[in-house]
């Protein structure tokens, strides 16, 4: 009887338990920590990537070296001018530094595997891919100078980073 006299008695709405909220949020947090990579280097040059559709994905991010080509950001233009410049790691460098930069990169790849198996480190360092982030307005002459430098340093695997368009 009392089952069917609904509405007469005030029923208390059960509050939603928020006890599991931290768990959910932590799960989200871990997902983002795994799925993303932190912005590790600050931009010294402005790079607007060109568009292309026939692209591939980068498989392994651990064995990549980034080289950026573009016009320095506003705050650095006083020092470096507004000509196309080269960014390695966080700073604007000259073409001649590419070699040292690549050697350092190779050494750090080797070092990260040294505790596991030095053999893997050596082969990974050999497979290193150099990613070129080049502003689309850059003249090809400069890009080719960089490519020559890469050939000299026998870093032959390169990847032109582009915006994917369909």
């Amino acid at each position: 009887m009392s089952k069917f006299d609904g509405g007469k008695k005030k029923r208390l709405e059960p509050g939603i338990s928020t006890a599991s909220l931290p768990d959910i949020v932590f799960m989200l947090l871990f997902f983002f920590m795994v799925a993303t990579k932190s912005k590790d280097n600050e931009a010294s040059v402005i790079v607007k990537l060109p568009n292309a559709s026939e692209t591939g994905k980068l498989e392994d991010k651990t064995q990549t070296a980034y080289i950026q080509l573009g016009i320095p950001v506003k705050s650095l233009q006083k020092v470096y001018g507004d000509k196309t410049s080269l960014q390695l790691n966080d700073a604007i460098k000259s073409k001649k530094d590419i070699r040292m930069f690549l050697d350092e990169k190779r050494a750090s790849i080797k070092a990260s595997y040294s505790s596991v198996d030095p053999q893997i480190g050596v082969s990974k360092a050999k497979k290193m891919v150099v990613c070129l982030k080049v502003d689309k307005k850059t003249k090809l002459g400069i890009v080719n100078e960089v490519k020559e430098e890469l050939r000299d340093a026998s870093a032959l695997k390169i990847n032109y980073i582009v915006n994917e368009s369909k």
């Binding site: 947090l29 932190s38 990613c131 695997k157």
Partner: peptide, 24 residues
Amino acid sequence: LLIFFLVTSEMSKESGMFQLLPEK
């Protein structure tokens, strides 16, 4: 923490065109 990570990280969505340079 979540918001901090959202701000300081980027999704890995880089795609590129691969090329093998000729050996010298």
